[in-house]
Amino acid sequence: MSAMKGWIDIGAVVDIPMLGARVVKSAVGCIAIFRTEADEVFAIDDKCPHKAGPLSQGIVHGRAVTCPLHNWVISLESGAAQGADSGQVRTYRLKVEKGRILLDGATLAASHAA
């Protein structure tokens, strides 16, 4: 699992539309990578805690996304469902360097192990 350690380059920030998301396929399932209006990038599981809706397909606003299936609002920072709903999705560490998005292989592996 050596390649899963360290930072994995998954693409450029500009590959994601502003206020949009793209999907990274991994052995642990799809990870949704979001880009906010403030140009921040977040990675969370592409699976709503409610009925497993693909969060990457939702509408992004502030630091949150609204699930396309039943309008749950999920925080991109914490992965927690907002408002009256309760639920949690896994978040992934990443960093942006020179416009490239680097996903933390360790969190990916940890998730893999979990």
Binding site: S2, I8, R22, V24, K25, S26, A27
Partner: peptide
């Protein structure tokens, strides 16, 4: 085009392990 393709596919990377 970005809507219809994944950004990256790490499953191949993992499969190569």
């Amino acid at each position: 085009a970005h809507e219809f393709a994944p950004m990256a596919d790490l499953t191949r990377l993992e499969a190569a392990e």
